[in-house]
Structure formats: C-alpha cells, structure tokens
Amino acid sequence: MNTLPLLENHHAPLILLGGTLCNARLWQPLVEQLNVSHVSCVTISGADCANAVASQLLEVLPARFCLVGFSLGAMVALQMVALAPERIAGLTLLSVNPLCDLPENAPVRRAAVAQAARAGLARWLTENLWVKYVAPHRLDEAALYNTIIQMAKETGIDTFAQQTEIAISRTDRRSALAAFRSPTLILNGAYDVICTPQHHQAVAEAAPYARWITLPDSGHFIPLEAPQLAAIAMRNWIQESKA
C-alpha cells in the first residue's frame, strides 16, 4: 500500500483510492483541477481482501477524512464505510460495482493474471482491456493510452495478483450506505462497460443521501477521461463535506 505523505489540515484531507493497475498518475489531472493541497493517493495493495486493506488504511489515516474511490478503490471505500463511517466526512465513488463477484469469475480472473505474467502487462492490457477502459471515441488518444499502460507497468504483476484476489473476495457493502449520512457523490461514465449504469443505480438506491451524476463522454477511466467535469462535481462535494 503506497501513499503520498499525509498533511495536517484544519479540514479533512482528501484520500484517493486507485483502481486495478493504477497509481497516483490516475489522479494527477483531477487533482490539478481541484486545486487542493492536502491529498493522499493510495495504490491498493498489501493484502488480498478488501477488509484487510480497509483495516490497514484506517490504522494510518487521520481521524477524519474525505474518501474517494475509483473502481477497485471504490470497493475498498465501501468496506471502509462499513467499518468506520464516523471517520468519513464525505464519500465519492467513481466507476463502482458494489456487488459480490460471481464465483465463476474467480478462475477467469486468476487465469488473466497468469496470462499477463507471461505476455507482459502492457501487451496483455492492450489486447484484453484497452477497448473496455475508455469511451470509443478516445481509443486513438495516445497520451491516455500511454498513461494507463505506464501505470500498469509501474504497478506490476505481484500487485495485480493481490488486487485480483481483492476483486474476487469482495462483499456487498451497500447496507452500510443506507445509514451513512455524510455527503456522498456517485460518478459514472456513460460509456463504461465494466461498471455499468445498473451497477451505479444499485449504489444510488442504497444511498438515500447521494447525488448521482453520469458523465456523458467518459468511459471507465473518469479521472483521466473527464477530469474537468469530475472536478466540478467534486468541488461542490468537498465544500459540503467541510460543512
């Protein structure tokens, strides 16, 4: 689990939990748009289940913080809500699937890790995930592609294996959202085929105080595809979380 140094602040710092094969590069365009200084970016690693990762984070994070989770990071964020809702001043979930993984997905996921180890993460991701990651009209954007490939290489196969086990073993924590009273924001991309509108509908139905926004030109990778639009929504959410 890699984090940037946490900074003390009168307000709750912003904690950003990345997705599978993601590191701090995921958040850079969004953080630049938010213009906030008290931020920590987390690469999900260090354990092979969401509960263990969430517990490790809660041991080192400040007493109160604003929490943002993307994809796999959103699953861990939901676990943190279940464990310590009183410590979370506000919650944003981007590209989230709140459901348990289907049992038949486990061998497929583990086989993918083995394939990536043999072929190399860059080649495997290009051949298997790139077309699903971003909106169709962004598939030819070299800078976007290069950033995602670079993150995968930097994250590495061992972390990918751990992250895969987290995805396999995750549990449905929507019930924790029903009692969660802090400001909650849900963002999804209209072209996301990994975490679909139905997944986000399931979260929104479980979170009675949440605001749900669909970004019309984005796929799965909202922080890289639509940082400006995401930042507009998140700036309002941050102000509400400070109230």
Rank of each mutant, 00 (worst) to 15 (best):
A190R: 13
L215T: 02
T20P: 06
E225D: 05
A112C: 09
I238K: 03
D172C: 15
S95T: 06
A207R: 09
E104F: 13
A63D: 14
S71A: 05
M1S: 11
R123H: 11
A111Y: 01
V36P: 00
A117P: 02
N2F: 13
A190G: 01
Q163C: 05
L215D: 11
A190K: 10
I232M: 11
S241L: 01
A54K: 00
L17Y: 04
A207N: 01
I44M: 03
E154G: 08
R138W: 10
L61W: 10
I15R: 03
L229P: 06
C41T: 06
P85K: 01
L17T: 02
C195Q: 03
L21A: 06
A119T: 07
C49G: 07
P223T: 02
P29Y: 10
P98G: 08
A226C: 13
F70D: 14
Q33K: 14
Q28I: 00
V31W: 07
A82D: 09
W130V: 01
L6E: 08
P208Q: 03
A167E: 14
L177A: 02
E141F: 09
H220R: 01
Q33D: 14
L78F: 01
A161F: 04
N105E: 15
E240A: 13
W124R: 04
A116V: 10
T214K: 11
W212E: 04
A210D: 04
A202H: 15
L58V: 00
V108M: 15
E127K: 09
L125T: 12
R235Q: 11
R25D: 06
V31K: 00
S45F: 04
D101W: 10
A179F: 07
G120L: 04
R123Y: 12
E165N: 12
A52T: 13
V113W: 11
V42L: 03
L187T: 01
P103T: 06
I238N: 03
L91V: 11
I213R: 12
V96D: 02
A207D: 03
C100Q: 13
P29A: 08
Q150P: 12
L83D: 05
S175G: 13
H199E: 11
D140C: 13
D192N: 01
P13G: 00
L187A: 03
P227F: 15
G219L: 05
T159R: 12
P85M: 00
S218R: 06
F70G: 08
S45Y: 00
T164L: 10
V113P: 12
A231P: 07
T147K: 12
T155K: 05
I44T: 05
E32K: 07
T43R: 08
L229S: 12
E32L: 08
Q239K: 04
A243N: 05
L129I: 13
V193H: 05
A74K: 07
